[in-house]
Amino acid sequence: EEWMVEKALMVRTGLGARQIESYRQGAWIEGVHFKRVSPSGESTLRGTTWYNYPEINKFIR
């Protein structure tokens, strides 16, 4: 699984929702560690946020 939603990321990493938000707003790079995608497939600020687990795992190492 490369891309996953927040709940799956929480299960895989043990991070809480606030921790994920903090990383997203600070250290993680949009387009690398996470992306927002609307149902139409376009990038957007209001779409579902998807997280790239392999890239996040590399960051944590």
Rank of each mutant, 00 (worst) to 15 (best):
E1F: 08
E1C: 10
E1T: 08
E1I: 08
E2K: 07
E2M: 09
W3E: 00
M4A: 02
M4I: 15
M4Q: 02
M4T: 03
M4W: 03
M4R: 01
V5D: 15
V5R: 12
V5K: 12
E6R: 09
K7I: 09
K7C: 12
A8T: 13
L9S: 00
L9P: 00
L9H: 01
M10Y: 04
M10S: 08
M10I: 10
V11G: 07
V11H: 12
V11L: 14
V11R: 12
R12H: 09
R12C: 10
R12Y: 09
T13Q: 02
G14I: 02
L15F: 05
L15I: 05
L15K: 01
G16A: 12
G16P: 06
G16L: 13
A17M: 10
A17K: 14
A17G: 06
A17Y: 08
R18E: 15
R18L: 12
R18I: 11
Q19N: 04
Q19V: 06
Q19Y: 04
Q19G: 03
I20W: 02
I20Y: 02
E21P: 01
E21D: 07
S22W: 14
S22A: 14
S22C: 15
S22E: 15
S22Y: 15
Y23W: 07
Y23S: 02
Y23A: 04
Y23K: 02
R24W: 03
R24I: 13
R24Q: 08
Q25N: 14
Q25Y: 08
Q25L: 13
G26Q: 11
G26S: 14
A27R: 07
A27G: 09
W28V: 00
W28Y: 01
W28F: 03
I29H: 05
I29D: 04
I29Y: 04
E30S: 05
G31K: 03
G31M: 04
G31C: 06
V32N: 03
V32D: 02
F34Y: 13
F34L: 02
F34G: 00
F34E: 01
K35C: 08
K35W: 05
R36N: 14
V37A: 09
V37T: 10
S38H: 12
S38A: 11
P39H: 11
P39W: 10
S40C: 10
G41M: 08
G41P: 10
G41C: 08
G41A: 09
G41V: 08
E42C: 08
E42N: 10
E42V: 09
S43H: 09
S43M: 09
T44F: 10
T44K: 09
T44M: 10
T44C: 08
T44H: 11
L45Q: 13
L45N: 13
R46Q: 15
R46G: 15
G47D: 14
G47Q: 11
T48Q: 12
T48C: 08
T48G: 07
T48H: 07
T48I: 13
T49G: 03
T49C: 10
W50S: 03
W50P: 00
Y51Q: 00
Y51S: 00
Y51R: 00
Y51W: 02
Y53P: 01
Y53I: 05
Y53A: 04
Y53D: 01
P54I: 13
P54F: 12
E55C: 04
E55S: 05
E55P: 04
E55R: 05
E55V: 05
E55G: 03
E55L: 07
I56N: 00
I56R: 00
I56A: 01
N57P: 00
N57D: 14
K58A: 10
K58E: 09
K58M: 07
F59L: 07
F59T: 04
F59A: 04
I60Y: 04
I60S: 03
I60D: 03
R61N: 14
R61H: 14
R61D: 09
